[in-house]
Design a protein around this nucleic acid. Structure first.
Lengths: 344, 344
DNA sequence: CGCCATAGGGTATACGTATACGCATAATAT
DNA sequence: ATATTATGCGTATACGTATACCCTATGGCG
C-alpha cells in the first residue's frame, strides 16, 4: 500500500512556491544570467526539494534540441542475428560514458544495411545527431550517407580516415598500424607475408591496413606478393576459409597479417589443423585486441586501437558539428601488442 | 551547395494537402477506426510523399508515453572504467532487437551503483520503463529498487528468480543449471567438487548456482564440503586468486564449478601454473558461455544461458507492466555445453 | 533634476501532437 | 415518418517548457 506517487511537479509548481513566474524558473534552471543570484538559489532549492526534473519532451519540443545522440550499429546482413562485432561493442562503453559526461542521452539501435534508418532518424526529432558504427555493404552505405548530408542531418562515423569520405570521420591510424605490424614481421625475419582481409575499396579500413603492410615491406626492400592477399570479412569462419584457400594455393608463406582478430583466430585454426607451428612456421598478427586474443594458443600478437579515446573523440566531433563549430578529421594512434604468435 | 533542407513537414501540412483537419491526420496515422478508409489511404500516401515522421517530442508530450525504454547497466565500482561484463553486453543485441520489433526506442546508460539513477530516470519522462542489468552492491541496489517501487516507476530486472525479489525479475534457471553441472561432474566420477563464486545472499544468482551443485551432489549421496567453496566475483583475477587460495588450503579436489567463465578462466590459469592437468587432475565447468570459453585450452565446459530468449522476455515483461497487464516471473532454461575441460 | 542604460523579471506565445467533445450526415430501428 | 444510433470529422484545448518582447525600478550621468 505504498502512497500514491504524487503528481509530477512542473515549473509552474516551482514558480508558485518561489513567488515568481514560470519563465523565471526556466531561466534560473537553465543558467540565464538575467536572474538574480538570490532568486536562482531559491528556485534551485525548491526544485531539489520537490525532486523536480525538467520534462524532456516539453523541453525538446520547445527548444528543438533533444540532448540525445543516436548510436547506429550496422550489421552485415547475416542470417545469424545474434552476432555483434565484438570490437564495436567494446566501443560502446566509451561512447556511452562520454555522452553522459557531456549531458547527452544515448539512443541505440542495430540496423541492417537495407533498412531505411536514414529516414527514420532524420526527422522524428529523437536525436540531435547520429554516430555510425560498422561496415556493412559499403556502396549502399555511401548512398545513404549522401542522403543524410542532403537532409542536413548531423552525423559522424567510425572508419577509414585516409579515404576521401562523405561526412565527418573518426578512426584509427590503420595505415600506420599496418606499417607497425609489417615492420615487426620483417624484423623477426619474415619475407613471405600474407594478408587476410578484403583489400578493395569495399572495406577502406582493411585496405588501409594492407597499404601499411605493403609500405613496411617496401621500406625493407621487399615487394608484396599479390598472390598472398586473400579476401576475408571479419568473422572466424571467413578467416578459416581464407587461410585454407591460401594453403591450397601452394604459395609458400611464413607470416600472416590478418585484418582482424576474428580472421586471425580462424586462420590459426586452419594452420593448426595442418600441423603448422606458430610462430615457428608461420608468425601471425591480428587486429583489434579483442579479449580472446590473449587466450588463444599461442597468444595472439595484435593491434590495439585506442578505444577509450574513440568515444570522446566521436562524441566531441559530433557535438561540434551539431553546434556548427569547425571540426577537423582526427586520427587515433594504434599500438602493436606483441605476444607469442610473433615471439621467435 | 546542397539544396536547403526543406522545413520539416508537420501534420498540418498533411492536413492541408489532404483537405482535412490536423486531428484527422493524427487519427489516421495512429490507426483510429473513426477515419474512413479512403481518407486514411490518402493521408498515408501524402505522408509518405513528404517523408513525414511524427515528431517524437510533441507526441510524447501530449500522450505522456515515450515509446522508449531505458537500459541501465550497473557496474561494480571499479577503478577501471572500461570493463563491461561481457555477459550482459551480449544481451544487448537481443534486447535492442526486441525493442525495435515492438516499436520502442532504447536509451542506454552505464551507471555506478552510487549514482542517483533512480531519481534521474524517474520523472524526466525520457522512458516508459527501465530494464536493469548487473550485479553491483546488492544491498544498495535493493534500497534503490524500493525507491523505484515507491515512485511507481515501471521496471524489470535480470537476476535470480528464486529469490523473493522486489519488483519483477526475469532470469535463468540457475539452480537447475547448477544441478546439471553438478550431475555431469558426478557422472564423470568426481567427488571433491569445489565451487568458486560468492555463495552468500550478496550474489543471489551465484548462490542459486551453488545450491544447484549441492543438490546434485546430495542426490548422488555426497555431502558438499564447505571448505571447497571460495568467494569470487566475476573477474579473471578474482578466479585466479580464489583458485590459488584453494590450492594453498591443501584441501584435495578433483573438480571446480566456477560461477562464471571469467572466474573459470582465471582458475585454469592458476591450475596450469602448478602443473595440474585438466580435466585429468581437475575437471572444470564455467558459466555463461562467453566467446572465450571455446578458445581456452582445454576448451571450457560451461552453461549457456538463453540470451536470444532473454531480450524478448525482459522487454515483454516490462511492456506488460507498463500497460498494467498481469505478468508472472519467468525462468529461462539454461543448457550445459560439454567441452574438453570435462571430457574424461 | 531629467535622460538613458541596465538589471530583473513578467506577459504572451510557439513548439507539434493527441484527445475530449460536439455536430452534422447517414443508417437503422420503431 | 420520426426517434435513435453510428460514422466521420471539425473545434478547441492541453501537454510543459523556452524565448521574444515588453515593462518597471534603479542608478549613473550630464
Amino acid at each position: 500500500m505504498g502512497r500514491q506517487p504524487s503528481a509530477k511537479p512542473t515549473s509552474f509548481d516551482i514558480a508558485y512556491l518561489a513567488g515568481v513566474s514560470q519563465p523565471t524558473v526556466s531561466r534560473a534552471l537553465r543558467g540565464s544570467k538575467s536572474v538574480s543570484a538570490a532568486t536562482r538559489a531559491n528556485i534551485e532549492r525548491i526544485a531539489r526539494e520537490l525532486n523536480y526534473t525538467v520534462d524532456k519532451n516539453a523541453s525538446s519540443l520547445r527548444s528543438q534540441r533533444t540532448h540525445t545522440l543516436a548510436l547506429l550499429f550496422f550489421e552485415d546482413p547475416t542470417p545469424d542475428e545474434s552476432m555483434i562485432n565484438p570490437f564495436f561493442l567494446s566501443m560502446l562503453g566509451s561512447i556511452t560514458r562520454e555522452c553522459a559526461r557531456r549531458g547527452y542521452d544515448l539512443l541505440i539501435s542495430f540496423q541492417q544495411m537495407h533498412n531505411d534508418w536514414h529516414v527514420a532518424y532524420q526527422d522524428s526529432h529523437r536525436s540531435d545527431g547520429i554516430i555510425l558504427l560498422g561496415y556493412g555493404d559499403y556502396q549502399l552505405y555511401l548512398s545513404k550517407l549522401e542522403h543524410l548530408v542532403e537532409m542536413g542531418t548531423k552525423f559522424v562515423r567510425w572508419g577509414s580516415v585516409s579515404e576521401e569520405g562523405i561526412g565527418l570521420t573518426v578512426g584509427s591510424d590503420n595505415v600506420g598500424a599496418g606499417e607497425q605490424a609489417g615492420a615487426h614481421l620483417v624484423e623477426i625475419g619474415r619475407t613471405r607475408i600474407a594478408f587476410l582481409g578484403d583489400a578493395s575499396d569495399h572495406a577502406p579500413e582493411f585496405q588501409d591496413r594492407y597499404d601499411g603492410l605493403c609500405r613496411a615491406m617496401r621500406a625493407a626492400g621487399m615487394e608484396p606478393d599479390p598472390a598472398l592477399q586473400r579476401d576475408a570479412v571479419s568473422t572466424e569462419d571467413s578467416g578459416y576459409a581464407a587461410a585454407n584457400a591460401l594453403l591450397a594455393s601452394g604459395q609458400p608463406f611464413d607470416a600472416i597479417f590478418a585484418a582482424s582478430d576474428l580472421i586471425a583466430i580462424g586462420a590459426m585454426r586452419a594452420l593448426a589443423e595442418v600441423g603448422l607451428r606458430m610462430p615457428h612456421d608461420v608468425a601471425i598478427i591480428g587486429f583489434d585486441d579483442i579479449p580472446a586474443a590473449s587466450l588463444t594458443s599461442p597468444t595472439l600478437t595484435t593491434v590495439m586501437q585506442d578505444l577509450k579515446g574513440a568515444g570522446p573523440l566521436l562524441v566531441d566531433a559530433l557535438l561540434s558539428r551539431i553546434e556548427n563549430r569547425p571540426v577537423e578529421q582526427r586520427i587515433l594512434p594504434a599500438r602493436l601488442i606483441k605476444r607469442q604468435s610473433t615471439a621467435v
